[in-house]
Simulated scan of single mutants.
Amino acid sequence: MKTVEPIDIGASLAERAYRDLRQAIVRGEFEPGARLRVDELARRFSVSSSPLREALNRLSEQGLVRILENRGFRVAPLTAAGVSDLARVRLLVECEALRDSMRHGDDAWEAQVVAAGHALGLSERRLGNEARALDDDWSARHRSFHLALYAACTSPLLRELADVLFDNAERYRRWAARHRPVPRRKHDEHQQLLNAVIGREEEKAIALLRTHITRTEQLVAATLHGVSGDGVQ
């Protein structure tokens, strides 16, 4: 008779608290620098303080939360220096992940990338001139497309880092989209990247990804400077 492993309720609660809080921070539901009070979060997410503290500590390791000495937790600030550093690391991690993925990706991976790119394109055509970064459906498809590009990377650590870095960048993108007067149009960028990837044009795909990440950094930094000088605390 097969043994059924007991469910770790504490671990599942901590994972849910982590997932829900991470999503709320990335979506901008908490202002940069906002105090994160455990008791208030416990009521909001219907969990006890223990899994919330575990979630907050995990998020601090990923750069989304700051731990203050004897003063609890705050949402990480958004700064020009921060987005510049983030872009620098994204270029190192994501370009290497894409290169490795293109070298090892099989037909199933390529089909996954094409499907994700098609789904993203459908969303972009539906939205037209609306601010896409603030649309939850577009954001989910955008995330799926980028992570699909790296899905065949043979390094689990690189894939995990790409996931974390993408969410950090998403928080900056969403904030900038709310404050930028003219929305960015990215369909051509995504389509060109998709075409280069499925065409196995490695150097072209890497160059397009570098431009894509750098352009995001430049637009976010310009918005940060325009709104509040050095950033949002």
Rank of each mutant, 00 (worst) to 15 (best):
R35S: 11
R35F: 04
L36D: 07
L36M: 10
R37K: 15
E40N: 04
E40D: 12
A42D: 07
R43T: 02
R44E: 15
R44L: 11
F45L: 15
F45T: 01
V47M: 14
S48Q: 12
P51C: 13
E54D: 13
E54R: 15
L56C: 08
N57G: 04
S60D: 13
E61D: 14
I67H: 07
L68Y: 02
E69G: 00
N70M: 06
N70T: 08
N70Y: 10
R71N: 14
R74Q: 15
V75I: 08
V75D: 04
T79S: 15
T79A: 11
A81N: 14
A81M: 09
G82H: 07
V83P: 12
S84Y: 02
L86N: 08
A87H: 13
A87T: 07
R88C: 05
L92T: 08
V93K: 03
C95I: 01
A97I: 02
A97E: 03
L98Q: 05
R99Y: 03
D100C: 03
M102P: 04
M102C: 05
G105V: 03
G105K: 07
D107C: 02
D107G: 03
D107R: 15
W109D: 12
Q112C: 03
Q112F: 02
V113D: 01
V113C: 09
A115M: 06
A115Y: 01
A116S: 14
A116W: 04
H118D: 14
A119R: 13
G121S: 14
E124V: 03
E124A: 12
R125T: 03
R126V: 01
L127W: 06
G128K: 04
G128I: 00
N129E: 08
A131G: 00
R132V: 04
R132I: 02
L134E: 09
